[in-house]
Amino acid sequence: MHGTMVPSALDSSLYIPELKNRRREAAVAELVACAHRAGAVRRPEALIELIARREAMASSAPGKSIAIPSARSLSVIESRIVVGRSTRGIEWHAPDRQPVQIVLLVLSPAECPLSVHVEGILRLAAVFRLQRHRQRLIEADSYEAAAAVLREAMA
């Protein structure tokens, strides 16, 4: 069922409270590795390359310290969102030049309709355009706190 992508996509094993890497490509690889460990994806190298291709063609950082990279691929087993935070910030080439502190990697299997995949991305973009949601997620001190922010914001 792909129609309920965002709420069902939350998973404690897909949360990185502090991303180790400060470079965009390495941070994406860290998020994909997390998804791979959780069994949400296969062929992680191919997925990282696909996300890099998309990043080269499309912006995934609308500004305001958030980035929403994404992939729709046969390498994705189930629709998932991998959440990563970086209190120091990651250089993501955002239009406002602000380093990214919240990364939401949206993963959809190939058979997920494009409209559903895009809707998931747009919902996250709309939610985290609001300062109060961004701030609460950055300040969340556990997965439970972060998940509560996401659930409440996406409801």
């Binding site: 929403i68 190939a110 995949h117 747009l122």
Partner: peptide, 29 residues
């Protein structure tokens, strides 16, 4: 598998409705 992933990506990039909505959110192709 690589070809299929590239076709999915191009399908997304060429979809006018998805492109317009993503662009409005600052996420355009």
């Amino acid at each position: 598998l690589e070809l299929h992933d590239l076709d999915l990506l191009l399908f997304e990039a060429r979809d006018l409705d998805a492109g317009a909505r993503l662009r409005r959110a600052g996420l355009g192709f």
